[in-house]
Design a protein around this nucleic acid. Structure first.
Length: 480
DNA sequence: TGAAATGTTGGGGCG
DNA sequence: ACGCCCCAACATTTC
């Protein structure tokens, strides 16, 4: 006779891994029998913020997770529908008394989980981030809204050591009689990011465990989109194919064992990027309304232009600014974009085209394989100058100068905008400055094979400054 | 995790 | 020789 508490459900959401999984470990601690379950939620899969690329990555991740569960004597149970109903049914079938899941701090997940917890024994564990939002707070108990003090407090909290990491369980057997849906076929290709925990760990090793490149040159190279110098771990962190702790432990170890100051600084800079991720999780948890409106109240009344044709040109990479178009085409083709390029295209959409940052936020969510509500929202509000600790609103990237600075020979542009492949380096970021003869020689006529700039830089800059200035002015009058 | 506008300085051409 | 102007080059301020 098995006592009822001998079965627990490990509800997999965005923690598709067996190693260092606090939810799985808690489930195993609660019961000797653990049922790993994933619920295909139509509300999430059909959300206008979802992306087929991310769904494909998720489905392949589920396959890989299922395979490694089967290697341990178990398997992944897949159901679909409303998670509450599906889990209640699964509890009835298995006699499970507990559901354990990794806590997710996004507004959608918080609402879903608190509704579900009214009827079901849902137990949530940390794991999405190293320091959960409530753990890193200001002296007065409020959430940090400036990165630097947040990162200081974050680092002052106890950091994970290698011994804190939880090994994957050796065996995970489940009853053979349980029904499971087949894992759906990926709706599209997601080349460049093979899913799964093994791949994630391999990337982490390849990036952080070496003394030289890439992490040893990270401080310098990471700003150059043509180089392969970033970790490209974001999709894996997004779906928990590695834990935040595993990444942080690797960064700390790389810093400790560095034999050059470049390698140490590289590791520290990369750690900072991981802390940015946690900062934005904390911001979204403390201020859920940032998902709908600007954090800064004085910038909520910008009179956007919101031109649909210009938005489409931006989405499709036909703005006439090569660095912008290269980045947008990289996004459309691969579901990923280099971080420097994300800043450039975001600044361009918001400042040059004067289009609401939320349009860009949604487009990114619809495209990115690593699209995460907290990080994406944080990044967009940072770029728009409307967020916490954001770029000053008057900081307007000049796409020509950014291109010359971070893609000096135009390698990145040539890779993603092939019609500019033969343009000389001197003109690669401002091809409209070529004389007619040079355009003929380069095999591209500006206005035909490649568009003329959609908007004049000097004009756009003045218009953005006026729009932002106007919003601040009207808001200060409003308050009086 | 900018860029443009404005200010300052100093070398050199030139009458 | 000297003052004047031009204008890089750099620094500071402003958006």
């Amino acid at each position: 006779m098995t006592p009822p508490e001998s079965v627990a459900i490990w509800w997999v959401r965005r923690d598709l891994r067996l190693s260092d999984n606090q939810a799985l470990a808690a489930a195993l601690a609660a019961a000797p029998h653990v049922i790993p379950a994933f619920i295909l939620d139509p509300r999430l899969l059909n959300s206008p913020f979802n992306s087929p690329r991310r769904t494909a990555f998720l489905f392949e991740g589920l396959r890989v997770l299922d395979a490694s569960l089967q290697a341990r004597g178990g398997r992944l149970i897949v159901r679909s529908g409303d998670p509450g109903e599906a889990l209640a049914r699964l509890m009835g079938e298995t006699g499970a008394e507990t559901i354990v899941a990794e806590r997710d701090y996004s507004p959608f997940a918080v609402a879903r989980d608190s509704r579900l917890a009214r009827d079901l024994p849902l137990f949530l564990t940390p794991g999405l981030v190293v320091h959960t939002p409530g753990d890193v707070l200001r002296r007065d108990g409020g959430a940090y809204t400036v990165f630097t003090p947040f990162s200081r407090a974050w680092k002052a909290s106890l950091l994970p050591g290698p011994r804190d990491l939880i090994p994957a369980p050796a065996r995970l057997e489940i009853p053979a009689t349980l029904d499971s849906l087949p894992i759906p076929d990926p709706p599209m290709d997601h080349a460049g990011f093979p899913a799964g925990e093994d791949e994630a760990l391999r990337r982490l090793q390849a990036f952080a465990a070496r003394r030289a490149a890439p992490i040893g040159r990270y401080v310098v190279d990471r700003d150059f989109p043509a180089t392969d110098s970033t970790s490209r771990l974001s999709p894996y962190l997004r779906f928990g194919m590695i834990s935040a702790r595993q990444a942080v432990v690797a960064a700390l170890r790389a810093a400790d064992t560095a034999t050059s100051s470049d390698a140490r600084q590289g590791a520290e800079t990369w750690l900072n990027e991981l802390i940015w991720r946690e900062f934005y999780v904390s911001i979204l948890a403390a201020f859920p309304t940032v998902r709908r409106q600007a954090f800064r109240a004085d910038l909520r009344r910008i009179r956007w232009s919101n031109d649909h044709a210009e938005f489409e040109a931006w989405c499709e990479g036909r703005t006439g600014y090569p660095i912008v178009d290269a980045a947008m085409r990289q996004l459309a083709a691969t579901g990923w974009m280099h971080n420097r390029a994300r800043m450039i295209v975001a600044s361009f959409l918001v400042k040059h085209l004067l289009i609401d940052w939320r349009w860009g936020e949604r487009w990114f969510m619809q495209q990115l394989v690593d699209g995460d509500p907290a990080a994406n929202n944080g990044g967009w509000q940072w770029s728009a100058g409307t967020g916490t600790d954001a770029a000053p609103y008057f900081r307007i990237f000049n796409p020509v100068l950014q291109g010359r600075k971070f893609d000096p020979d135009g390698t990145y542009v040539r890779r993603w905008v092939p019609e500019l492949a033969r343009v000389p380096a001197a003109f690669i970021h401002a091809p409209w400055e070529m004389a007619d003869a040079a355009q003929v020689a380069a095999g591209v006529h500006i206005g035909r094979e490649y568009p003329a700039p959609i908007v004049d830089h000097a004009f756009a800059r003045q218009r953005a400054l006026a729009a932002y200035g106007g919003a601040r002015h009207s808001s200060s009058r409003h308050e009086r």
